[in-house]
C-alpha cells in the first residue's frame, strides 16, 4: 500500500522450506500477505511487510516458521528498557495500544 511501508531489511522471519507441508495455514493467518504457496510449499513473497506478530509461527503445524515475535511499539520498548525487561505493553491506560 502506498506510503504505509515500514523499515526494510529488519525482519527476523525465517522459513524452512524443507519442513513445510504446504498446509496454507501461514497464508491464512498472516495479516500482511507475506506468504504464497508455490508448488505446494510456502514461500515468502513480501518479507518487509511482516510485522512480526508471530501468528504464522504459532500456527505452523510443522514448525517450519520462526520469527522473533513482539509488539512493534516504541512505548513498549521504552517501558521494557526502564524496567529492564523485554518490550512490554503495559501502557494500562489504553486498550487500543498493545
Amino acid at each position: 500500500m502506498f506510503g504505509l511501508r515500514y523499515l526494510t531489511h529488519v525482519v527476523t522471519l525465517e522459513l524452512d522450506e524443507q519442513k513445510c507441508n504446504g498446509c496454507r495455514m501461514c497464508v491464512e493467518v498472516c495479516p500482511h500477505a507475506v506468504f504464497e504457496i508455490v508448488e505446494k510449499r510456502a514461500k515468502i513473497i513480501d518479507r518487509d511487510a511482516c510485522m512480526e506478530c508471530g501468528a504464522c509461527a504459532m500456527n505452523c503445524p510443522e514448525g517450519a516458521l520462526v520469527v522473533n515475535a513482539g509488539v512493534g511499539c516504541a512505548t513498549a520498548v521504552i517501558t521494557g528498557a526502564i524496567r529492564g525487561t523485554e518490550p512490554t505493553c503495559d501502557c494500562a491506560a489504553d486498550p487500543d495500544c498493545c
Binding site: R5, L7, V10, V11, G72, C73, T75
Partner: peptide
C-alpha cells in the same frame, strides 16, 4: 509520533528498535 507505532498495524518490533 514514534509512540504511535504502538497503535499502527504494520510496524515490527525489529523495525521499531532500529528506528529508535
Amino acid at each position: 509520533t514514534m509512540n504511535y507505532t504502538g497503535s499502527s498495524t504494520y510496524t515490527s518490533l525489529s523495525g521499531v528498535r532500529r528506528e529508535m
